[in-house]
């Protein structure tokens, strides 16, 4: 009986013994990912985008070091220019460099995705747990507020909010948070409603746990997985909505590196002159491809998470 022997070797052995099952499970998770090509594609895409975001200063050295998100311009002509030696992906309307825009726009996309979904998760978990665990009047109030938000069309509510708050990327994020949290609160509430009836919650109460402790330690770990899966899917979706708002001219200030804005620049050049309809393809296709791959990556990753985290699908 000396598994807490004080010698360093004993401790090392303990650690090895304790971590072995976890390592095994981790290995199993990686195997699951490796075996499904789609999750592999999702992971690769997200890692690629993460690398682009991290390496942005090296891939596209900023022209204005104090404000790197400002896309450099190469002239003031409205007509886009095709890819060339100086502009790998060409320039869009107003001679904004497309290459620079999409590279730094990756950072913007990650920022929007993580900040919005992170905040939504926090709000949703707190309000949803209170509502689901305590029930009664509190539940009724929170859920009616949720109903009110959910009865309005997402994009239109977001547009109204951005218009009211003023045009900026921060306000777009705020609007997306306000629009997005009700779905999360409702989802986690439903799961908590089913978990709180479990006998181990009653057992925890009978042992003398406080409500806070029961929620954080016993209820949430059993109820949170669907929410995490939804969050990973939503990182892409939020970027898409933000792009839609930018496309409508409600997003970042003009010239700010943001995929939605890149597409909004291309609005007049989707169809080229008569006889050559694809003349300006690069203005739409390149930023569009970035958005498409980013969202696709997160969606595939969300599916992969579901396969890993859901114990019923995991062992199949």
């Amino acid at each position: 009986m000396n598994f807490f022997s004080l010698s360093s070797k004993g401790k090392w052995e303990d650690l090895k013994k304790a971590t072995r099952p976890r390592l095994k499970e981790l290995k199993f998770s990686f195997n699951r990912i490796r075996k499904s090509p789609l999750s592999l594609v999702g992971f690769s895409l997200i890692i690629l985008f993460a690398l682009i975001a991290l390496m942005a200063p090296y891939l596209a050295p900023p022209k204005y070091p104090h404000n790197p998100y400002q896309i450099p311009r190469y002239g003031y002509s409205a007509t886009p220019k095709p890819p060339s030696q100086t502009n790998f992906f060409g320039t869009t309307e107003g001679q904004y460099d497309i290459y620079y825009g999409v590279v730094w726009g990756t950072r913007t996309a990650f920022r929007i995705g993580f900040m919005v979904v992170g905040t939504i998760l926090l709000i949703g978990i707190i309000l949803g747990s209170i509502s689901g665990y305590y029930g009664g009047v509190v539940d009724e109030i929170i859920m009616r507020v949720v109903d009110t938000f959910m009865s309005l069309p997402t994009l239109i509510l977001a547009m109204a909010l951005v218009t009211a708050l003023g045009h900026s990327l921060d306000n777009v994020m705020k609007a997306l948070i306000i629009v997005g949290w009700p779905a999360y609160a409702r989802l986690i509430r439903g799961d908590i409603l089913s978990v709180r009836e479990e006998q181990y919650v009653e057992a925890a109460r009978a042992v003398g746990c406080s409500d806070f402790f029961i929620i954080t330690k016993h209820v949430l770990p059993n109820a949170i997985y669907p929410l995490l899966i939804m969050a990973s899917l939503d990182i892409g979706a939020m970027v898409l909505t933000a792009a839609a708002l930018s496309f409508l001219g409600l997003g970042a200030p003009v010239g700010y590196a943001d995929w939605g804005q890149m597409i909004s620049f291309a609005r007049n050049w989707i169809v080229g002159p008569p006889g050559n309809p694809l003349a300006y393809w690069y203005t739409v296709a390149i930023p569009g491809l970035f958005i498409l791959l980013f969202v696709l990556g997160w969606n595939l990753l969300g599916d992969a998470f579901r396969d890993i985290l859901d114990p019923k699908l995991r062992r199949r």
Binding site: Q199, E202, A203, A206, V207, H218
Partner: peptide
Amino acid sequence: GNEISMIFQEASSALN
């Protein structure tokens, strides 16, 4: 749990 404690009916569901 300290002065009075309880053994539950279904062990499989009383454990988290």
